[in-house]
Amino acid sequence: MQNYKRIEITVGLFVVIGLLAISWLAVKVGQVGGLGASGYVLTADFDDVGGVRKGSDIMMAGVIIGRVDGVKLVNSDHASMALRINNGVKIAEDAFASVRTKGIIGDRYIRITQGTEESYLEPGDEIEETESAINIEDLISKYIFNGKE
């Protein structure tokens, strides 16, 4: 029976180590939102999100400050996005959200440019000023036909 006690302890340790591995994977690598998810949510409307999805990064000054919580189509013509911003990051009321690309063919992400106002957005507020994804074709045609108009 002494023996069984030792086995029990070893098995206990094994399970704890396994669970630690699972939680490291979930929390650190998988970035699971945790229970009830931390941070607060802002919304923003875009004409074109250019493929940004749930889980895409939100950056300010090149630093990740949150993740996209969800994207949905509103009124069959534009997209509404829920942005989960980490606690402690304050965003001014006149901040500006744009859809950007990492490198030329990289991932899409949301860039938030800080505003100058003293008052900050509350959870659930909307970022009024947004800029849609830059469509390279549009850009080129704009450049070409610009002179003619």
């Binding site: 399970v15 396994g18 591995a21 699972i22 490291w24 994977l25 690598v29």
Partner: peptide, 15 residues
Amino acid sequence: LALPLLVSLFDVVGI
């Protein structure tokens, strides 16, 4: 029950 624990460990060690 053991396999998920073992594989998670495999993942962590591999990474």
